[in-house]
Design a binder for these strands. Structure first.
Length: 419
RNA sequence: GUGGGUGUAGCUCAGUCGGUAGAGCACUGGAUUGUGGCUCCAGUUGUCGCGGGUUCAAUCCCCGUCACUCACCCCA
């Protein structure tokens, strides 16, 4: 048996990769216009970084990380998400000393050891953006405006923006307590999972899909009703700004996050067309994170987009390879040599040119040229070469003319550039 | 971690009520001593996922295992 790839880690082959390039190019364009600059950070970090940022009791940290010891014995982890490494880098390079506001984006692979299924893989790819240094609700709204604009320009169908507020260290702990005591009274009607997690992660119970849990929690106290003054006005202003920017959204008071660092505004772009892996982008504000990681007390907000899920939504249509401008078909050794040097000269001019290297029949060469959907074929024969001419065939029109080799390359280059 | 489905040619799949296998596409060559797409003809490719059991005989039945996949869980 030959060596295969690793479960849940996929190859992106020609024909599919063009979709990915499109998604990445659009992100660079859109994010660039909003003033974001790219940052590239390693895929491996010290394990501690993720434990401290994502949260010790989250599923990600408890059971999904690719963690190993390097030769010096330090525990390292393949990054399961992008925000923590970016914040680590931000702090380490004291980026706050250069500019009070940093707007950064990243593109790259993330790793989580989960059971793979549609839209969920062990190596997956995210495009993320982060704004550090501003707590103003205008920024929350602007981030959401940029995100929904990105979905419009990439022509991703059927996504809706859901927003919520998770409160802050002032209001969340007391809400948590009232929620736990509510859940205790209804524990009998909760599913086994919720009975287990209602103390560790009570907010998650509100997001449970089991009908019984939904019913039991209909009258549960809502975070949005228990926000402190600061969080409430912040959330209200976010909504106002979204309306002013004509960004459509719905409030989902039961939306929760899988990472502990989120505060205040949280959001998801949700689709109905991907089954249960329905979040195609998600994020929120994380005002305490940078301080927790040993940096200054600066607010932040950001999101990550799941590229596999977008690629799935854009459909399976495989993209055709580009059409060569010219195929050089040759007969005989001297013509083949001459054709080969011409091929290379034109390629150096940036023109897509092909030829057959293995000395097949002219018929076979033309068939191959046709299969590649070549626009033109230059037929170089031995006798013609001596006379300084060749046959130039237009494959679309099935027409052919004899051309002088002298000045031919210049003529072709002009023709190709004019088209 | 739990459950379901599927594993036959490069791809999509058929098939054998147990006697070691086929189609379409793709690929190669020919019908035109130097000319593609259409058509016609010919040809190549499989340890029928792997291991074990039952049997005279297993790709087919049974058990195990691995892989892929979908769902739960979780999440982008």
């Amino acid at each position: 048996m030959s060596i295969t790839g690793i479960k849940g880690m996929n190859d992106i082959l020609p024909g599919d990769v063009e979709t990915w390039q499109h998604l990445e190019e659009q992100a660079r364009k859109v994010f660039g216009a909003f003033g974001y600059r790219e940052i590239r950070v390693p895929v491996v970090e010290k394990t501690d970084l993720f434990c401290r940022s994502i949260g010790e009791t989250t599923d990600i940290v408890e059971k999904e990380m690719y963690t190993f010891s390097d030769k010096g014995g330090t525990s390292m982890t393949l990054r399961p998400e992008g925000t923590a490494p970016v914040m680590r880098s931000f702090i380490q390079h004291k980026m706050y000393a250069q500019d009070p506001v940093s707007k950064l984006y990243y593109i790259g692979p993330m790793f989580r050891h989960e059971r793979p299924q549609k839209g969920r893989y062990r190596q997956f790819h995210q495009i993320g953006a982060e704004v550090i240094g501003v707590d103003d609700p205008k920024i929350d709204a602007q981030v959401l405006a940029m995100l929904s604009h990105y979905f419009q320009t990439t022509k991703i169908p059927d996504v809706v923006l859901q927003i919520n507020s998770l409160g802050c260290p002032e209001c969340r702990p007391s809400y948590r307590e009232t929620l736990i005591s509510f859940l205790e009274q209804h524990i009998a009607s909760l599913c086994a999972d919720c009975q287990r997690r209602y103390t560790t992660n009570p907010l998650r119970v509100l997001d449970c899909k089991v009908p019984g849990c939904k019913e039991a929690t209909v009258d549960a106290p809502a975070m949005l009703k228990n926000l402190c003054i600061g969080c409430e006005t912040h959330f209200g202003q976010v909504k106002e700004h979204l309306e002013a920017l004509s960004v459509s959204y719905t409030v989902n008071p039961r939306m929760v996050r899988g990472l502990d660092y989120y505060t205040k505004t949280t959001f998801e772009m949700v689709t109905g067309s991907l089954g249960s892996q329905n979040a195609v982008a998600a994020g929120g504000r994380y005002n305490g994170l940078i301080k927790d990681l040993g940096g200054p007390d600066l607010p932040g907000i950001g999101f990550a987009i799941g590229l596999e899920r977008l690629a799935l939504m854009l459909g399976e249509q495989s993209i055709e390879p580009p059409r060569p401008e010219l195929f050089i078909a040759t007969l005989g050794e001297t013509a083949t040599k001459a054709g080969f040097t011409m091929l290379t000269r034109l390629q150096r001019e940036g023109v897509l040119v092909e030829m057959e290297y293995t000395g097949k029949s002219l018929k076979a060469q033309l068939r191959r040229a046709d299969k590649m959907k070549t626009r033109r074929v230059l037929i170089l024969g031995g006798d013609e070469l001596e006379r300084g001419v060749a046959q130039l065939r237009n494959m679309d029109q099935s027409s052919q003319e004899e051309v002088d080799l002298d000045g031919l390359e210049g003529r072709l280059l002009r023709e190709i550039h004019d088209a």
